[in-house]
Amino acid sequence: MTTPCEILTITLKPAVDYATSTERVTAGPKLYCSAPRIDPGGGGVNVARTILKLGGRAKAFVAVGGSMGDLLLELLAKEGVPVIASRITGETGYSLAVMDEEAQKQYRFSLPGALLHAVEGQMLLDQIAPEVPTHGIVVLSGGMAAGLADDFVQEVQKVTQRHDTRLIVDTSKTPLQHMIDNPHAPVDVLRLDRSEIEKAFGRTLTSISDNLYFSEELVRRGVAKIVVAGHGAAGSCMVAGGQRFFCRAPKVPERSKVGAGDALVGSFTLSLSRGDPPEQALQWGVAAAAATVSTEGTALCEQAVTEALLGQCRLEQF
């Protein structure tokens, strides 16, 4: 059995995630909510939590500040996630998910996190560099903190290249668009959802073939060697090594979408770290995402449920 390589996740905009419910979400009256579920959150944080839940191990590099940052670290410690905490001057943010019990619809609110200064951006790079595992995997996941340069992903990439380490990126908004418009060198894996690929190309995706075409275009442009693109509840597309795949998601009761994309990245990364081919890693990722969707609030996938769903994740080659 292949010994898994080391994994480091990077979260530059973490959050404490609150999830609650109320009878009906409506404007005006005071809404009385259930006792909240509170979890550590943010892209790379959830990736590391997923890996741990699925029987793997990953270190989480997290930029944290203030009392909310202290709470986030406390929550991670309770889950046993190994953490490298980088202290910043601003306050860590938080998010809120509210379930309308009558309509069975979830409302999600994300508050801004800390504003970072240029000197803190350099500090983060200096602190990340010695933590990068040689011949390992680094996952840079989640939004970029306000104040960081648009090319911060490329700066992290330069650090990982010195260690012959694979880089998986899952980010959004301006940093993602900067990667697409100004590729420094292809990252090993880029994950994005359907709305992000539509925004990047200014086109509506009407089919899986459309999704695969534009994913392939990202590979041709030199943005990434492997592109994993979500296609809503149907599943996920992937272009890797000149091959095009679609993995159909199993049908599960939809309770909460919080963390589903992060679970996909975490499970995909763990599979790659064990030497699995990308298409098998995609199946694991889709299974973990489905397992997460079927959980309540801000909970993530469980190993037994993910393994049970794996066989229902049908892989198709185009």
Rank of each mutant, 00 (worst) to 15 (best):
C247H: 08
G285L: 13
M144G: 10
G266S: 10
D210T: 15
H184R: 13
E131F: 01
K78P: 00
G311E: 12
A35M: 13
S256F: 08
D164I: 09
G136C: 12
L315R: 04
T269E: 06
L31F: 13
L309G: 11
L140M: 14
Y107L: 12
H231S: 13
R166L: 11
I88Y: 03
V156L: 03
A118L: 13
A77C: 12
G136M: 04
T20L: 10
V64M: 09
V228H: 10
D210Q: 12
V187D: 00
G202F: 04
C313L: 14
D188Q: 11
V169M: 03
L115N: 05
S67K: 11
R49V: 13
V239G: 00
P36M: 04
M179H: 00
C301Y: 07
T160A: 01
D126L: 02
A290Q: 10
V293K: 01
A58W: 12
V139D: 12
L176P: 07
T20E: 07
Q161A: 06
V83M: 05
S110L: 15
R49A: 01
G56Q: 06
E120W: 09
T11C: 11
L76N: 04
A288F: 02
R108G: 04
T9E: 08
C33A: 15
V45W: 01
G65V: 09
L148W: 02
A118K: 15
Q280K: 13
V228D: 05
I128C: 08
Q127W: 05
I180L: 04
P277L: 02
A146C: 00
C313H: 02
G142W: 08
L176V: 08
V187Y: 03
D126N: 15
A304D: 14
C313T: 15
T204Y: 01
P278L: 02
A15F: 03
T298R: 06
L125E: 07
G90Q: 09
D262Y: 01
G69V: 08
V265Y: 04
L270I: 05
T295Q: 15
G259C: 12
V25R: 13
T295P: 05
A145L: 09
P40R: 02
G222D: 03
A97S: 15
G113V: 01
P186N: 04
L310V: 12
S67G: 03
K199Q: 10
P29E: 05
A260D: 09
A288G: 03
K173N: 05
V47R: 11
T2H: 05
G222S: 08
Y213I: 07
S141M: 10
C237W: 00
P36Q: 04
D100M: 11
S34L: 10
G121N: 04
L31M: 15
E307K: 10
A281S: 11
G235W: 05
T204A: 00
V132C: 11
Q280S: 14
A240L: 07
V286D: 07
T50S: 12
M179Y: 08
E196V: 12
L218Q: 02
A149N: 01
G259H: 11
T134F: 14
A249D: 02
A97T: 15
C301H: 09
G261E: 02
T22R: 07
T92G: 06
M144T: 09
H178G: 07
E102H: 06
G113A: 06
R87F: 04
A27P: 14
D70A: 08
L264Y: 04
V139H: 14
